[in-house]
């Protein structure tokens, strides 16, 4: 038996699920992650819609109603200054969300640019980037950010400055991971092939390297939101974060903390919202990690 054609296995390939479909399916099977995703969407919607529907705005002072327990007039009570805790919590949540997302996007951008550059080009660019990473990591970020915030923040710019600083001191770990992943991708055959077909380096990075570590970047972006929100809270707790009259969950918790044992409502409302928010973000991050990486089984950031 002899035929003229050379064709071998051109029979229609077996049907397989596309990668994105498979990822979605794996994600949806993880109940925690789905609950988390719904939670985030719900919280974002609340942050956008409800401020206009509430009887009080976050910076309004109800004279004569100081430190009032929750009642019909103020559903979650008032603060020492007579501001409505519910309105402040909702506003604080939207501040925290904005800060969280801004920081996450910024730091992921910085880390993937620098990490991939260091690994792909090697030599002096790698040396200098690694040196900068060491420099940024040698002092706990809290100290530096606190000093700068103390000196330079004003009530108007405080949240933005805080977000920029958190991003500026938050990219190093991911950049290291991106670098080591790029190092392993750099000698992958499709990257070599692209090089040998004459593609310029920036195109190789943008087209072949970053898309192939996108699962890490997506997970990192998600978890970064949670870390940024927690970091914001921490700095605001000491008064180095968002400044009054602007309000974040951190400033509100901080205000409540001093009176937590006697006037617990000021403390507990924002604290509960914060924990729910961060848990949702982390659940989504963990769920994405499991869904994107078939080898990963679950859990935190090692």
């Amino acid at each position: 038996m002899t035929t003229d054609t050379i064709a071998e296995s051109t029979a229609t390939p077996r049907r397989r699920m596309s990668r994105s479909k498979l990822t979605l399916r794996r994600f949806l099977r993880n109940k925690m992650a789905v609950v988390g995703a719904c939670g985030i969407v719900a919280l974002i919607l609340i942050a956008i819609i409800t401020p206009h529907m509430l009887p009080w705005t976050y910076d309004q002072i109800d004279s004569g109603h100081f430190l009032k327990a929750p009642d019909g007039r103020h559903w979650l009570g008032t603060t020492q200054a007579g501001r409505d805790v519910l309105a402040m919590t909702v506003h604080g949540m939207s501040r925290s969300l904005i800060i969280g997302f801004t920081v996450a996007v910024l730091q992921t951008t910085i880390s993937c640019t620098l990490g991939a550059t260091a690994a792909y080009f090697g030599r002096w660019s790698e040396k200098s980037i690694m040196w900068v990473i060491d420099l940024f990591q040698i002092i706990p970020s809290f100290l530096v950010i606190a000093v700068i915030m103390k000196g330079h923040s004003t009530p108007k710019n405080s949240w933005l400055l805080l977000a920029l600083l958190l991003a500026a001191w938050g990219w190093m770990m991911t950049a290291r991971v991106v670098r080591s992943l790029t190092l392993s991708l750099k000698h992958r055959e499709y990257v070599l092939a692209a090089k040998y077909m004459g593609l310029p380096a920036y195109k190789i990075i943008a087209r072949h390297i970053l898309p192939n570590i996108s699962s890490l970047l997506i997970v990192d972006l998600t978890l970064g939101v949670g870390y940024a929100i927690l970091a914001e809270t921490g700095l605001s707790f000491f008064g180095f974060g968002v400044m009054a009259p602007d309000t974040s969950l951190g400033t509100l918790i901080s205000e409540g903390a001093r009176l937590a044992t006697t006037y617990p409502w000021i403390f507990s409302a924002p604290a509960i919202v914060l924990v729910i928010l961060v848990m949702c973000v982390n659940a989504v991050g963990d769920g994405l990690r499991d869904a994107l990486d078939p080898n990963s089984s679950s859990g935190g950031r090692a």
Binding site: E189, Y190, L192, A193, M197, G198, P211, N212
Partner: peptide
């Protein structure tokens, strides 16, 4: 060049058309 490992030799995130067109585009 043609490489050894067909799993690693083509970028898993690009459709076949783009893979083959890439050197032409370059």
């Amino acid at each position: 060049v043609v490489f050894q490992d067909p799993m690693a030799a083509v970028d898993p995130r690009m459709p076949v058309f783009d893979i083959i067109a890439e050197p032409l585009g370059a």
